[in-house]
Amino acid sequence: MDLLGYGSMIGEAELNPVDPRAKIAVTRLRAFHRIVAEHSGRHFKTLVINDGAVAYRDLSLRSNGITHDFLQRSFLLFDAISELERRNGWPGARMVVAAGFRARGSRRGIDAAAARVERILERMAAGEIAPEQAVREAGRIQRYSDDIPQLQANFAFTRAYVADAGGSGAGLGGPRMFVDTALFAGGKTPLWVTSGPPIPFQEPRLGLQCTFAPVTGLEAPGRGDGLNIPGLRDGLEIGETIAPTLSLRKLIKAARETS
């Protein structure tokens, strides 16, 4: 998700932080950050970088409930940001929800910090430092190189980023929410999802071909058989749908048969 027109706002202020126009842009940015934080949680973690935000979650291989939860949380965030933008006369935001594979990301910064905490605890256990000093030292620990493992080599992030960058030229313009139709059973939006006509998207350099639905509303989907929500795919079904090679599709199919 990113704010539309933010670059133009700070450009008009000539990147001068004391220009009144820049102050409006910063006010807009801080309001954006606040709403993203309010919608973040254990099952909807986010990373904010200036005027953009990324939410991420691994899908379930056995149930499409997590697919629905992520889609619903994404829509609620988009709706809240859109209301803020309308109320203030700002250009709005664009959100792209995409599915994809990911490799395990590096935990180097996290593990290094954890090792430092472990050393502090060992010193406290050995009586070398008092608990109060241990707390103070732990509180001063900083990570000088940071990353989020879930977003490294994350090709759902790649699909969303490339589609967002395509913007109007790719048919994905304006302050709208676009959802990868790979999330939907049969590649079609279910009855409880309100959307416009599907929009094909491709990026030949990456071998990327997919379709996005401009979603404008979500209703209560019902529970179907009580286990799965009608009209959505689970993680394995999505993986089998978007797998770029036959060998990968066979691996996913085998995982489905043994799960």
Rank of each mutant, 00 (worst) to 15 (best):
Q133M: 11
D58S: 14
E128H: 11
P149Y: 04
S8Q: 14
F78D: 07
A170R: 03
T158Q: 08
G65E: 12
N154H: 05
G100R: 02
V193T: 07
E14H: 06
M177S: 04
T158A: 11
M95L: 15
V26N: 00
R28W: 09
G100I: 01
A93G: 03
K45V: 10
E118L: 10
A165V: 13
I81Y: 05
L151W: 11
E137D: 15
T189Q: 12
E12N: 13
A22V: 06
T27E: 14
E219M: 05
E219P: 00
D2S: 12
A25M: 14
D111T: 12
A98E: 08
W192N: 03
A255E: 11
G52N: 12
R249F: 08
L71T: 14
S8M: 13
F78C: 03
V179D: 01
L218Q: 06
G186V: 01
S145N: 08
A138P: 05
K23Y: 00
A55H: 12
R223L: 15
R116W: 04
I148Y: 11
L84E: 15
F101S: 01
L47M: 15
G41S: 05
M9V: 05
T189L: 10
D51I: 13
G89R: 06
I148N: 09
A156F: 04
D225K: 07
T27Q: 13
P230D: 03
L191E: 13
T46C: 13
A185N: 12
A113V: 13
A160L: 05
P20T: 09
S74Y: 06
V26Q: 01
L76P: 10
D69C: 04
N154F: 04
E12P: 02
R104N: 08
